[in-house]
């Protein structure tokens, strides 16, 4: 309970500090949000979206789940995406994975984790499809990183295929899709794919070879 009390106290402290420097801060924010970014990241406590991107409240719409998944039938992420793109007029959608991701590590192991095994089934497929390439790699750590990266690319691809993004691209070059990885060791974001804003660019990036390694087609 002490822990819990601590965050309540933190909150009071934070409000005090903010209001001291900008008395109208909460008034402004309460009027509505016009975020520029949608961040789809991992639930991992070490990869907090606003902190690692230096964004202020009101700037970034956030969706986080285990292993930053964009699954085509997940109403949760699709709702966030639809609301973000069609109502909030989000310009950038960022899929952010991170090295050392527990979800990816679970997918690499035998499936005895419980419910989460269903959730990360897609990552197991990526591992299976890239078995030869992965086995040829030097060490476990390198393999692990590679799977994290492939997972991010797979989610960006899934994102590009959603009706929301397809309909938006039908109207113009918006939103832009990005895929990045956060390195827990250095705190740096590494760009994997940047600025997909049309089917043409998506096709150029997702070459047949890359698609084969992501989902066998």
């Amino acid at each position: 309970m002490e822990n819990y009390r601590r965050i309540m106290a933190n909150n009071r402290e934070w409000v005090k500090k903010i209001v001291e420097s900008d008395p109208g801060y909460f008034d402004k924010l309460s009027k509505g949000q016009q975020p520029t970014f949608l961040f789809i990241g991992c639930s991992d406590s070490r990869a907090p979206a606003e902190v690692i991107t230096g964004t202020e409240p009101g700037e970034m719409f956030v969706h986080r789940n285990i292993a930053n998944q964009v699954q085509p039938a997940d109403l949760n992420v699709l709702s966030v995406l639809q609301y973000g793109v069609e109502v909030l007029d989000i310009k950038h959608v960022i899929v952010c994975g991170h090295y050392g991701c527990g979800g990816v590590r679970a997918a690499m192991a035998e499936p005895f984790h419980g419910l989460v095994d269903y959730w990360i089934g897609g990552i197991r497929n990526i591992i299976r499809l890239n078995r030869h390439a992965l086995e040829g790699m030097g060490g476990d750590e390198e393999r692990f990183k590679r799977i994290v990266e492939l997972n991010v690319l797979e989610q960006v691809y899934n994102l590009s295929q959603t009706p929301v993004v397809q309909q938006a691209w039908d109207k113009g070059p918006r939103p832009l899709l990005h895929g990045v990885v956060y390195d827990l060791h250095s705190g740096l974001l590494q760009e994997l794919v940047v600025g997909l804003d049309s089917n043409k660019k998506a096709q150029e990036f997702f070459t047949p070879q890359l698609r084969m390694s992501l989902h066998g087609a």
């Binding site: 509505g32 949000q33 016009q34 069609e86 109502v87 909030l88 007029d89």
Partner: peptide, 10 residues
């Protein structure tokens, strides 16, 4: 189309 109060009025 789209709800009232949308940032993007469509």
């Amino acid at each position: 189309i789209g709800p009232p109060g949308s940032v993007l009025q469509r």
